[in-house]
């Protein structure tokens, strides 16, 4: 199995209850399809972030964008096709997800 980070970029400020519910149901659905969510975290809104560049502190996220990073979870899947099929289940109101392999849990020889 290979591990992938799934980064959720969400443009909506408030998530409707059905989306929150779908987030709660995601680990179960992933498991049904032969994958596993190993870890996950949801971030407070971008307005609560503080950025440090060298000695300079700024109020706000490192990358300003309409769809900010809202959460990350770690997914275990057989291969990229499997990981993409599972990541597509992530509920997103406005935006999308980025799937990226993790170092140490991927690569040619495992």
């Amino acid at each position: 199995m290979t591990q992938y980070a799934v980064m959720i970029f969400e443009g909506a400020d408030e998530l409707p209850p059905e989306v929150l519910e779908a987030h709660g149901a995601l680990p179960g659905r992933v498991a049904e399809l032969g994958g596993k969510i190993v870890a996950g975290m949801a971030l407070q809104p971008a307005g609560t972030a503080t950025t440090i560049r060298g000695d300079l502190l700024t109020d706000g996220p490192f990358l300003e964008s309409k769809e900010g990073l809202a959460g990350v979870f770690v997914l275990e899947a057989r291969d990229l096709d499997h990981a993409l099929a599972l990541a597509k289940l992530t509920p997103v109101v406005k935006g999308g997800v980025e799937v990226r392999p993790l170092i140490g849990f991927s690569g040619a020889m495992d």
Binding site: T2, Y4, R78, D79, L80, D81, H82, A83, V99, R100, P101, S106, G107, A108
Partner: peptide, 11 residues
């Protein structure tokens, strides 16, 4: 292909 493990399969 190697790092993201793009599979060697026919879809």
């Amino acid at each position: 292909i190697a790092a993201a493990r793009i599979p060697y399969t026919v879809p």
